[in-house]
Simulated assay, not measured.
Amino acid sequence: MTRFALTACLLLTAMPAAADCVTANDLSKGVVFARADGHKGRVIAKGNGVFVDYAAGAPVWSDNRQTLLGIYELSSTHYRVEDPNMVGGGSTDTVQSFRGKPPVPVAGQGWSGVVKAHTRQNNSSESGGYDYDDRFKVSYAFLAERTVKLSGCSYKAIPVEANFVGKDNSHTQRWLYFPDLGFGLETRENGVDNGLTALKPA
């Protein structure tokens, strides 16, 4: 083997494998991700919706959401308990409906509307829980597009911030929406950051 061929062979062997980057086609099969709190998740398209499990594989903690585009939440189930031996607490199930059709995020634009929510708070009491209804005025801001790097791959991302204001309850959320992939993932809730640390095809 010539010195040139040997050098070329060594260079090819030393080169790192290309990153397994997510594409829009992967959403139908599933995309896995990780967040700063250590929880891993999965997002997948089903029918006309995007389903996000923010705690896939966690022993107790659950956080499942049926959404449009990964952003506009239609239903959710939360049970935020880490310790399998913990007693008490309970899950929260919420169903939301939007007045009007929420848009696909476009950087520099926004959307305002009304959201109606019905929540079932399950607990360990004799009554088993209680139900309540909320109505929110909501405003979404689609911020300037930027590039983020996750798992060795670069993606265009539009930060989306939402402010929900109700008569008795208010809250805020933030997502990163990936326009080339067709979905977004939550990165902040009520001022608490929980950013993405990994993104890969399932």
Rank of each mutant, 00 (worst) to 15 (best):
P103H: 10
V114F: 14
M86R: 14
L181W: 04
L68D: 12
A157M: 09
N163S: 15
L10Q: 03
S170H: 01
E145I: 04
N169E: 09
S154P: 00
R174M: 13
A17N: 08
L11W: 14
S91Y: 03
Y132D: 11
V148Y: 05
F51N: 03
D131V: 04
A157K: 06
Y132T: 02
R146M: 12
S125F: 15
V95P: 01
R120W: 15
V22K: 08
G70V: 04
R146Y: 00
F4K: 14
T147E: 13
N163Q: 13
S62A: 10
L12V: 11
R65T: 05
G90A: 06
T94Q: 00
V165T: 13
Q173V: 05
C9A: 15
A36W: 00
Q121C: 04
R35W: 04
D93K: 08
D193S: 10
N85A: 14
G89R: 03
D193R: 10
G184C: 12
T94D: 00
V32N: 07
W175P: 05
G47I: 04
L176A: 08
I44W: 11
N163V: 15
Q173R: 14
M15L: 15
G70T: 05
S75F: 02
A198Q: 11
T147L: 02
S91E: 02
A55I: 00
A144Q: 14
S75D: 10
V81N: 06
A55L: 01
N194K: 15
Q173P: 02
V104Y: 01
P179M: 11
P179C: 11
E161T: 10
E189T: 07
T147H: 02
A55E: 01
V165P: 00
A45C: 00
V114A: 08
G152I: 08
D133M: 04
K156D: 11
N169S: 12
R188E: 15
A117R: 11
F183S: 02
G195T: 11
L185Q: 10
L68Q: 08
E73H: 03
V87M: 09
S127L: 12
Q173N: 13
G110L: 09
V138S: 08
V104H: 01
Y54C: 09
A24R: 02
I158D: 10
L69R: 05
H118W: 01
L196S: 09
N122I: 09
N194C: 07
A36K: 05
S97W: 00
A19W: 01
A58E: 13
A18H: 03
S97E: 09
L11E: 03
A198C: 04
G191F: 00
N194V: 13
G41P: 11
R99K: 07
G113C: 07
E126G: 10
S170N: 07
Q66T: 03
E189S: 12
G38S: 06
G152A: 07
N85P: 01
A19Q: 04
T13A: 12
Y177W: 13
T2K: 02
G30Y: 13
S75L: 00
L150C: 07
D20K: 09
A18R: 12
P179E: 08
